[in-house]
């Protein structure tokens, strides 16, 4: 690149030299004004003056001002980015907190539900047990009553049978059998019936 530029420059220089080599007939007639050395002092003087003045105002006033505002903007943008990142972090934290609270609440709700279900189940079981016990008691009482009634009925039947037997025997034989004999006979007959039924 540099070599290329240098070769281009040297050819341009030759071009310039060709201009310079041309005969300069005079300042007024067709001479290249660029080669009129009498103007050089003035041009250099005013160039250095204006260039120096431009350098002064640019380096002292305008470049620091521009650089300052660009720097300030860059810092501001960086700050804003930082702040945005901080806000994002906070938002994520809040989100995480919310999610944790939500999970906790869910867990608590689930545990409460389970507890309630267990206690209700226990209550139900207790009530069922109680009920069963009460029913059992009633059944037992009823069974006892039934048994009692059956006993009474059996006794009544036995009594009736005893009296009937005595009546029948006394009317058949004319003499009243002793109670023990009647009972004996009836007991034997009953056992006989039972045995036959079995």
């Amino acid at each position: 690149m540099r070599a290329l530029l240098a070769s281009g420059a040297s050819s341009l220089f030759l071009f310039g030299a060709a201009f310079a080599a041309e005969p300069v007939p005079g300042e007024q007639e067709g001479g290249l004004p660029q080669l009129d050395a009498s103007t050089y002092a003035s041009q250099i003087f005013w160039l250095l003056l204006t260039f120096g003045a431009l350098y002064f105002v640019l380096s002292r006033i305008f470049l620091p001002r521009l650089g300052g505002v660009i720097e300030e903007r860059r810092n501001r943008i960086a700050d804003d980015y930082d702040q945005a990142a901080e806000f994002k972090r906070q938002a994520e934290e809040a989100q995480a907190g919310y999610e944790k609270a939500l999970a906790d609440a869910k867990a608590r709700a689930a545990s409460i539900a389970a507890e309630t279900r267990a206690s209700i189940d226990a209550e139900i079981a207790e009530m069922e047990e109680e009920n069963d016990a009460r029913l059992d008691a009633k059944i037992h009482a009823a069974e006892a009553r039934i048994a009692e009634t059956a006993e009474r009925a059996r006794d009544a039947v036995f009594q009736a049978a005893r009296e009937t037997t005595r009546e029948i025997v006394s009317s058949l034989t004319g003499e009243a059998p002793s109670e023990a004999d009647v009972d004996d006979a009836l007991t034997t007959a009953r056992e006989d019936i039972h045995a036959r039924a079995a």
Partner: peptide, 25 residues
């Protein structure tokens, strides 16, 4: 010869333009 010439004028105009532009900007 340090005459103020048309060349000096246009150097001054360049300087003035830069000055105006950067002042405004």
């Amino acid at each position: 010869d340090l005459s103020f010439t048309n060349a000096s004028l246009w150097m001054l105009i360049s300087f003035g333009t830069a000055l105006l532009f950067f002042t405004w900007a």
